[in-house]
Design a protein around this nucleic acid. Structure first.
Length: 484
RNA sequence: GGCCCCAUGGUCAAGUGGUUAAGACACCGCCCUUUCACGGCGGUAACUGGGGUUCGAAUCCCCAUGGGGUCACCA
């Protein structure tokens, strides 16, 4: 159902990461839901960089985040890298804009300078926490007289700017996924909107930017829900139109705690590197907190966009399940065309010890190799171990050797060598193997497993015809001759 | 601790007052198969508890419990 607003006005959402680390699972999911909503509603998506934490922000992380998003197939219409009419899109480049609004708030008495030191504040906070009282700023500098203020400034003290919060008022967040959430301003206390380094804080900058950039829907993680009343207060006193909010639940680790580094791979790049397909990660993330109407869960990007709706977004947090990601990834791999998959696998093979052999193959043989492993790999990186039996001369276990040394096995292998043509394509290899027991006048059981053992040293692995074709008849002969 | 959010199998989840409470992953079994894998079929397994409301609650309300988030000159 469309709200009146979205019928009248094109919707605009944003993803606004801090470049203080790589893009992680949770951030990617927030970006994804924004993207899905924008595309489904035929609205716009913008990307803004919130780099007001000078200490921890870096251009490298910014780059990595952008690359991660692009890799996932999430793109945007406005913002970093693509430009637009509401730039700049990096908060540290928008300081003059914030300053204008800070001046306005200072002039109208809605904000004031605060000279409290961090140590002082930490002490007060600690005391309040211990007494079990509401942890909020005391308002000590709220009524500093102008002379006192001037004196402190002359002393060289650098103030922060605090936003004046009138206590005792109800602040209502109207949330698209959570409904009506009510807070009381008494629990908030005057909060800092400009740090002593002159840089605005998140709660202030986000409001100014979302307003200036025309954002209509703020879709973000639930951890921001308790920040929302602060932001609402700013919207109100600055007279900005309030956007729609949608706070999506968090992604938790196996221990039900918020996902963090100690839960293993949490950055999108790590998944990319170990060979997860972007469409699989996209699919998986979409299924975490959202569900399609039908029963089909293996979905492409377009299909997910087509079906997406905020009304089907769950309120409860979701535990990240690697098993399911793995399954989805295998499913998406299985659906790849041989040629395309072959190209995707090359980087992994290049860094394997077998690249030399792979490189020498003709295209047809390479495709047989890919076909042989396609249904066997969960991540692209698995190709390296799956491909091993084709290229590594087997190291036979003692009992395997015992078995291969049985006279009847040696006889069978001898027979195989006699019947083996000099060249085979996959079809020929299949019918050759199929006809072999009859040609040797032996039961299938006594034929196939010994051959497998002779060729690979292992009782399990790819189908024999694949082995024959990819190894090539000369190599097959060499391995068997070595045994008899 | 205050405030806020959440609560269906181990996990993801469907479900919006009347269902034998879907489906998927994982797990187990069977089948397919020259092995493993893939695939097919089947199985184990859930409404946190207690009060209401109602002819009737997984669905609505309250309380309890549990889990999570947040209380920064981080975002």
């Amino acid at each position: 159902m469309l709200s009146v607003r979205s019928r009248m006005k094109q919707i605009k959402v944003r993803f606004a990461p801090s470049p203080t680390g790589p893009l992680h699972i949770g951030g990617a999911r927030s970006a994804l839901f924004n993207y899905l909503f924008a595309r489904k509603q035929r609205g716009k998506m913008l990307l803004r960089i919130e780099d007001t934490d000078l200490e921890r922000s870096s251009p490298e992380f910014e780059r990595e985040i952008i690359d991660s998003l692009s890799w996932l197939g999430i793109n945007w219409d406005e913002g970093i890298d693509v430009g637009g009419d509401n730039g700049p899109y990096r908060q540290t480049e928008r300081l003059d804009t914030y300053q204008r609004y800070v001046d306005q708030l200072l002039r109208s008495g809605h904000a004031y300078h605060c000279f409290c030191t961090e140590e002082e504040l930490a002490r007060e906070r600690q005391a309040l926490l211990e007494k079990g009282e509401i942890v909020a700023y005391s308002g000590k500098c709220r009524h500093l007289d102008p002379e006192e203020r001037q004196r402190k400034l002359r002393q060289g003290l650098v103030p922060t700017v605090r936003f004046k919060v009138v206590s005792g008022q109800e602040v209502v967040v109207n949330d698209l996924v959570r409904g009506t959430v009510t807070f009381n301003s008494s629990e908030i206390g005057d909060f800092i909107i400009v740090k002593s380094d002159g840089i605005p804080t998140y709660n202030f900058a986000v409001v100014v930017d979302d307003h200036e950039m025309g954002v209509t829907h703020v879709i973000r993680a639930e951890e921001h829900l308790s920040n929302t009343p602060r932001q609402l207060l700013i919207y109100q006193t600055l007279g900005f139109e309030i956007p729609e909010f949608a706070h999506i639940s968090l992604i938790l680790g196996k221990d039900r705690q918020k996902m963090s580094k100690r839960h293993g791979a949490t950055s999108i790049m790590q998944y990319r590197e170990s060979g997860y397909l972007p469409e699989a990660v996209f699919n998986f993330l979409a299924l975490l907190g959202w569900s399609p109407e039908g029963e089909q869960e293996i979905l492409g990007r377009d299909e997910i966009v087509k079906q997406f709706s905020l009304s089907r977004v769950a309120k409860n947090p979701a535990v990240f399940d690697l098993d399911k990601l793995n399954w989805l990834n295998a499913q998406h791999i299985k659906r790849k065309a041989i040629m395309e998959l072959g190209e995707m696998l090359k980087p992994y093979l290049k860094s394997s010890p077998f690249w030399h052999s792979v490189e020498q193959m003709d295209q047809a043989t390479y495709e047989v190799l890919i076909e042989a492993v396609r249904d066997r790999i969960v991540r692209l990186v698995d190709v390296v171990k799956e491909v091993e039996p084709f290229f590594i001369r087997p190291q036979y276990e003692a009992d395997t050797l015992d078995r291969l040394e049985q006279p009847e096995v040696r006889g069978m292998l001898q027979g195989l060598l006699e019947h083996l043509p000099d060249e085979l394509d996959l079809e020929e290899a299949r019918s050759f193997m199929k006809g072999l027991p009859k040609a040797l006048q032996l039961p299938a059981k006594q034929v196939y497993m010994p051959i497998r053992l002779a060729l690979t040293g292992s009782p399990q692995g790819p189908e024999l015809p694949y082995l024959l074709v990819v190894m090539g008849v000369p190599e097959v002969r060499r391995r068997i001759t070595g045994l008899i």
